[in-house]
Each structure stands twice: as C-alpha cells, then as structure tokens.
C-alpha cells in the first residue's frame, strides 16, 4: 500500500506543476505510469477524490487565493487556471465554496479550512493507515459548557501557544473530576467577523469547583460529523473532513464553528481526540 501511495503522490505532484495548463486525466495517469482506468480506481481509493474532482478543487483553491491576494480581473484568473470562460468558472467556484468569485473578493475570502491544499504524502499516509476510520454523521443533544474564551491571533503559529495558555488558565480556574471530557470550540470559520475565537471548557454540571472568570457556552443540538483521531493527527483530520470527506458525501457545512474534545488525563503521552463539525 505504501508503494501505491507514493505512486499516487507522484500524480499529485504532477497535478501541482500543471494547475494552470489544460491537462487531461489521461496525462496524469500516464505520469503515474498507470492505465487511465486503473489510475482512476487507485487515485480514488488513496486520495478519496476522483482525479478530475481533485484537479478542479485544486485549481479553484489557487484561483480563490489569487482573487484575495491580487487585483487581476476575474476573467483573467479564470483563464489562468484553464477555465474556458468566466461563467463556467463562477458556477464551479460557487459549487465548491457556496459564494461567487466576486463575493469572495469583496468579503476578503474563504477561511483556509475550506481551501483544498495540495495533499501531502503525510496526509495520504494518514488516510491510508491501518487505524484510519472514516467519519460518522451523528445527532448531538444540546450541551452547556463552562470555560474561557479568547480571540485568536491571525498568525497561525501563535495560535497553538494561545490555545495552550487558555487551557492552562481554565484548568487553574476550576477543578475537574478525573477523566472529565474537555471541549475546545473554535468560532469564526466563515470570516464573518474577521476574527476567530477559541473556547476551552467542560460540561457545567460536572465541574467540582468553578470560578467567576468562567463563562458559559452552548453547543446547540444538531447534526455533526464526528471523527476520532490521535491528537498529532488533528490538523490532517480537519483538512480531510473539511475539504475531502464532507464534499465527497454531499453534505454542507454550517461554517460557524467546530468542536474537539478529549478525556482529561495528564498521564497520557498522546491523547485520542474527537472532532465534531456541524453540518446542514
């Protein structure tokens, strides 16, 4: 399997270096050294996208970045990424991102979570590992949490430190029973407020000691996509759910927030976390 993942990764690299050219799926198959039919089966099995779907989503992602980063005319961006005309480009752009290219430019963007970045070898290995289990769609009851909220920095590198700090502040502001579940909620994925916020807390009724510092947050009842992964795989799992699994099964995200949770056990070297993403 590892060898096949590497061959398909070659195809991914070929796609990356030809995003702006009018390449065919047959040419991609050829670059990987497979017949077209066999390549389509293998690509789908390993990447969880059809080759053409992957090519289109990668082009649209790079086009979305171009819309935000430069002032090129929309038609020129469309032509740059091998779309024949602006109408086709706008239609498929809307299908992927639920907004038009001009809205994307005006509202300054699409959150990075919804952009399909080029699949890395690590991501392909993750989704083809023996312990990988596909996400599930579940119904979640309303849940009231108590914890701390912070505004996240725009610099992604600082976010991890911020989250660590707020978790530590929360743990010193309360007492938790052994193996209580901790929740982290991230808000503002749709860039509506131009800011992202993070909340860390636990179920209100399970807290042994609370503090006046803590605030309540509610996870509303609804449908969620749930996936369990090792903490070290969280960013791979989030990218997979947002940009591969949810579009593949035809669900639409409620792009306001996502939740992750884990059993609080300071003795564990690596914890298993669950991710909950609300869907419509």
């Amino acid at each position: 399997m590892v060898d096949q993942v590497k061959v398909i990764f070659k195809a991914i690299e070929f796609i990356e270096s030809h995003l702006k050219e009018d390449i065919t799926v047959a040419q991609i198959a050829d670059a990987a050294g497979y017949s077209l039919f066999h390549f389509m089966r293998k690509f789908n099995q390993i990447v969880h996208h059809t080759p053409y779907d992957y090519l289109m989503r990668r082009r649209l992602t790079e086009a979305a970045k171009a819309l935000i980063q430069n002032e090129q005319r929309i038609i020129d961006i469309a032509l740059d990424f091998a779309f024949n005309d602006q109408e086709t480009f706008s239609r498929v752009f809307r299908k992927m991102f639920q907004i038009t290219p001009s809205q994307c430019r005006k509202e300054n963007g699409i959150s990075f979570q919804f952009l399909l970045q080029a699949k890395t070898l690590d991501e392909l290995k993750f989704i083809n590992s023996d312990h990988f289990s596909i996400p599930l769609v579940i119904e979640v009851e309303e849940l009231t949490l108590t914890g701390l909220m912070i505004a996240l920095d725009k610099n992604e590198q600082k976010v991890a430190t911020q989250k660590k700090q707020v978790l530590s502040d929360f743990l010193s502001a309360c007492s938790l029973p052994k193996l209580a579940t901790l929740y982290e909620i991230e808000y503002g994925l749709n860039h509506q407020f131009g800011k992202r916020y993070s909340f860390v807390g636990a179920e209100k009724e399970k807290l042994i000691r609370s503090s006046a510092l803590l605030v309540d947050q509610t996870i509303n009842k609804g449908r969620f996509v749930k996936m369990e992964v090792l903490e070290s795989e969280m960013s791979l799992a989030l990218a997979y759910i947002h940009t591969t699994w949810i579009p593949r099964v035809g669900l639409v995200e409620n792009k306001e927030m996502f939740v992750c949770g884990w059993r609080y056990d300071a003795t564990l070297k690596e914890r298993t976390i669950f991710i909950l993403i609300p869907v419509k």
């Binding site: 389509m40 089966r41 293998k42 690509f43 789908n44 099995q45 059809t50 053409y52 779907d53």
Partner: peptide
C-alpha cells in the same frame, strides 16, 4: 461517469 466516484475498492 467516473465508475469509482463513490467507492474505489
């Protein structure tokens, strides 16, 4: 269509 668009095994 793409015969493997839902399952690829």
């Amino acid at each position: 269509g793409d015969p493997f668009d839902t399952h690829a095994g």
